[in-house]
Simulated assay, not measured.
Amino acid sequence: MSIFKHHAKLETNVFFLAVGILLSVIVGGLVEVVPLFTIESTIEKVDGVRPYSPLEQKGRDIYVREGCYLCHSQMVRPFKDEVERYGHYSLAAESKYDHPFQWGSKRTGPDLARVGGKYTNDWHVRHLINPRDVVPESVMPGYPHLKRELDYSTIDADMKALRVVGVPYTDEQIANAKKDLVEQATSDDASAAVAGRYPKARMGSADANPKVTELDAMVAYLQVLGTMVDFTTVKPEKIAR
């Protein structure tokens, strides 16, 4: 019973209570932080992950601008039901060039971490303009305004800013940003320079408009999600049930 008496003294003394709280926070913080200094990196080393192409990056900017992350996550958690539905659980390496990353946990719509290549460009265009054309029960609003021409006048400056925070864009990639953006959105040539600089980039117009539109950018971004890593070469880990 004496321990409870001492506990009561601690709770009724503001100074000792404050000291106790401070010590608890310090110990808890050390337990969480110190182990991180014993490992080289918290990000897995996997092949294939690259920075977004200029068109994909503009699409990602539009994705964030339109608030798509409010209803869609980009994080497949390591649970059996999620892996069976969406595919391999998300790796930290897949988001290492995202500023900010789009993981989240809110799902009014499905997770999009593995949506790349799952549907055709035409499906994505129809879905973005009027979702109920392809998913009758959808509650997602339409985005017909994405048909407008894309403003990519600052894409090279955007890539320079991203390089400052760690995205490894080269001088060559930045110098060719606008050219690569237009080429990806208008050419089906798999041997185009942009395809060499950004492997697995989806080539060609999404909406058959000769001008580069916001739809082109958005679809290019969606089509690359989850396609960079070859998961047949990634060593699997135990999945929680």
Rank of each mutant, 00 (worst) to 15 (best):
M1Y: 03
S2Y: 12
H6R: 13
H6D: 13
H7Y: 14
T12H: 11
I21E: 13
I21T: 13
V25L: 15
V25D: 12
G28W: 15
G28C: 12
G28R: 07
L36C: 06
D47Q: 11
R50G: 05
Y52V: 01
S53C: 14
V64W: 12
D81M: 12
V83K: 09
E84Q: 11
R85I: 12
A92G: 10
A93W: 05
D98K: 08
W103G: 12
G104S: 12
G109N: 07
R114G: 04
V115R: 08
D122C: 02
H124A: 04
H127D: 08
N130I: 00
D133L: 14
S138D: 09
G142R: 04
H145V: 03
Y152K: 06
D156N: 05
L162M: 15
G166Q: 11
V167T: 12
P168I: 06
T170G: 07
T170Y: 05
L181E: 03
A185W: 00
D188A: 04
A192M: 07
A195M: 09
A201V: 15
R202T: 02
A206W: 00
A208N: 13
V212C: 06
D216R: 03
L222D: 02
G226E: 02
T227K: 14
M228D: 14
T233F: 03
K238Y: 03
